[in-house]
Design a protein around this nucleic acid. Structure first.
Length: 142
DNA sequence: GCCAACGTTGGC
DNA sequence: GCCAACGTTGGC
């Protein structure tokens, strides 16, 4: 089956891209929303996920890879919640901001725009690639 | 810091 | 099972 694409959000002061790079890998905890949880469960080893900084920055900063599929969240006894393991793949050349995504005619339907509170969301491949394209535009030309 | 949007909880 | 109240998230 083809690799799936995702976007995960983190508040950078809680756990930033740099933290992930520093740690080498982490488990993605803290999801307490059923829809996001279901998305976590659908992730497979090898899937790519954009790493988005919410609140501070509000931009996609890097690409992470799923290294272990969903298992019981070690931070709670509540068996409704799961985590996945992720590791950094590479940072985006230039971050892609929410404003850019909102302004892009091809990206109007992605959950980040239509469903802003969802913290783990699937992305269609063309949308994933479109965001990658945007990240190649140097910030000086924006 | 405010507030809108949305999800969850709990009373009935 | 409905819906009002409440809490949380996240953009601005």
């Amino acid at each position: 089956m083809a690799r799936a694409h995702w976007l995960v959000k983190s508040e950078p002061f809680k756990y930033s891209w740099d933290d992930l790079v520093k740690d080498g890998s982490t488990y993605w905890d803290g999801v307490r929303n059923y829809q996001a949880r279901n998305n976590l469960r659908a992730m497979k080893v090898g899937d790519y996920a954009f790493y988005y900084h919410s609140n501070e920055g509000k931009e996609v900063v890097g690409i992470a890879k799923v290294t272990r599929s969903a298992y019981q969240d070690p931070t709670t006894d509540d068996d409704r919640w799961v985590v996945v393991d992720v590791e950094p793949v590479k940072p985006l050349k230039t971050p892609v901001t929410l404003a850019q995504i909102k302004a892009d005619s091809k990206l109007q339907k992605i959950p980040l725009v239509t469903h802003s509170r969802l913290s783990v969301m699937p992305l269609e491949k063309p949308d994933f690639e479109r965001i990658l394209e945007l990240s190649k535009i140097p910030s000086t030309r924006r």
